[in-house]
Design a protein around this nucleic acid. Structure first.
Lengths: 198, 198
DNA sequence: TCCATTTTATGACTTTAATCATAAAACAGA
DNA sequence: TCTGTTTTATGATTAAAGTCATAAAATGGA
């Protein structure tokens, strides 16, 4: 989102996180601005009995973890590399200096936060209605617009596992599997050797 | 959040909305920046069978409805006056000009969006865990920090109706009533002639 | 002050997703 | 290629919130 050269000009350093590596943890105070160069990162919570809720999944050129950075609050979730990933880290002070000296970046940040707030609003409304079919469809349609789903002759490939869909919608795997089957029967999506197309 | 004088300098006009009046509707394109002078506004969705989900409640000096304004997207929810309210409206063009010419306001906007994203993240994780007691408590504790709950000798008065708590947490009124009773029995909150204190 | 509406409350019952158990298929690493 | 792990899958059962019915208390207008 912020050009790499600009970040590096302010002293950003590239760091490599192996798959599964923890980038930051819930409860800690933010110290850096994070922007992905390559790979995939998820932000998620684990509740008392180990159940995961995925707040969001981020891909190359996307940033994550800014809200608590701006607010001086503890991270409300963990950031974990889903794949081997390269991430640019810029210390808070330097990031703030970058913002001050480059007002156009502020607008970018605002738009990015607005986008994520929009997603959260839509999903919150959807999750409260409780109907699994609604939740799953909304997530997929959102993913088509904002995650990097690829289109081929069968439609958009939803490249999430059933478990991930469950963790993003607050449903259990079995429920997701049964829901997807039901949606296929209704003809609103296709399952071609276990992969879901919409 | 943005000083009244600054908004008025850029041509903002004060508009009065009676209790229950619709300020904007889901699906419409944004045209204004909205900031409350007095009163109370809720943003909410109604699903197919008329059930309401409250995205958030806003009070004096707070703004609402900016994300879609920045993104040129349709409103994902309705804004409705909960009480008779005065609201400052500033047209999109003038608002953008204000932002460009007053970079410090951008930082305010960023912090505000970050705060709301933080709330949504916490509630989303909480709502996915499904346990009513968790959801209700989290909402109350959030409310103590961010809504204007008043403290007296019994603790903080949670001035939401059971119905509102339900609409904010995705639970039914009866469930909220039973949950609050259970929480009282556990001693984590007080009910004094039907009012809830925490 | 009176009356209609809203809010809180409670019990009975129903529905639905979670849970538990189990297994086949696919995948990844040695 | 073999093997352990992950992913998808399905059936049976359970638990828990939703639904429905009903009503008392509180509130707010007229």
């Amino acid at each position: 989102m912020i050009p790499t050269e600009l970040l590096e000009k302010y002293g950003a350093l590239k760091k490599v996180f192996d798959k599964m590596a923890i980038i930051f943890e819930e409860g800690n105070l933010p110290a850096y601005y994070y922007q992905i160069v390559s790979g995939e990162v998820k932000m998620s919570n684990y509740n008392d009995d180990g159940r995961e809720f995925i707040q969001g999944i981020f891909y190359k050129e996307q940033s994550f973890g800014e809200p608590p950075l701006f607010l001086n609050q503890n991270y409300p979730a963990n950031a974990i590399a889903v794949e081997d990933s390269e991430v640019l880290l810029l210390s808070k002070n330097n990031f703030m200096k970058l913002l001050e000296e480059n007002p156009s970046v502020s607008i970018k940040i605002i738009q990015n936060l607005a986008q994520r707030l929009y997603y959260k609003s839509v999903m919150a409304a959807e999750m409260s209605t409780q109907e699994p079919e609604h939740r799953v469809l909304k997530l997929m349609d959102h993913g088509i617009a904002y995650f990097n789903f690829q289109k081929d002759e069968n439609g958009y490939l939803i490249n999430f596992t059933r478990q991930q869909i469950g963790d993003l919608t607050g449903l259990r795997v079995e429920t997701v599997i049964r829901t997807i089957k039901a949606l296929e029967k209704k003809g609103v999506l296709k399952i071609i050797n276990r992969k879901v197309y919409r």
